[in-house]
């Protein structure tokens, strides 16, 4: 039983870590602010959930479980709100979502630097 819990918990932690790494890759590779926020915030909450679940299985049941639960509630509350605020701020400062097809990777940087021009590329 304890052995099984160890493996399941460990597996969940590794999965959570993998998800976070994927999120980081998304932040680096996605084309505009909004998709990047999307990548970061979703994988952040998801990864943290998996890891906390794993830790809860590894640790003894009791006060520690309660603390992990509180941490989880806190993350579920703050991380989406932060993502929302970030997107709001980006929108407010003139960044527009890029919609349509992108073939030329080199263009990304140019449009990031000049957010106003992003609107022109709309399909």
């Amino acid at each position: 039983m304890a052995d099984a819990l160890f493996w399941i918990g460990g597996g969940l932690i590794v999965a959570g870590a993998m998800l976070s790494v994927l999120g980081a890759a998304g932040v680096l590779r996605f084309p505009d602010v909004y998709t990047r926020i999307h990548a970061a915030s979703l994988t952040d909450t998801g990864g943290a959930t998996l890891m906390l679940l794993g830790m809860g299985l590894l640790g003894p049941f009791g006060l520690i479980t309660l603390k992990l639960l509180l941490v989880w509630a806190f993350i579920m509350l703050t991380s989406p709100a932060a993502a929302n605020a970030l997107a709001n701020a980006a929108f407010g400062s003139g960044h527009r979502p890029r919609i349509g097809n992108f073939q030329i990777m080199g263009e990304d940087k140019a449009t990031d630097a000049a957010p106003e021009s992003a609107g022109k590329e709309r399909a």
């Binding site: 806190f74 509350l77 703050t78 709100a81 929302n84 605020a85 709001n88 929108f91 407010g92």
Partner: peptide, 18 residues
């Protein structure tokens, strides 16, 4: 006008006492 921070305000209201 131009205020989009409803989500933020609601969350903050919950968070401050916590």
């Amino acid at each position: 006008p131009g205020d989009h921070h409803v989500v933020l305000r609601v969350t903050a209201k919950m968070l401050v006492p916590l």
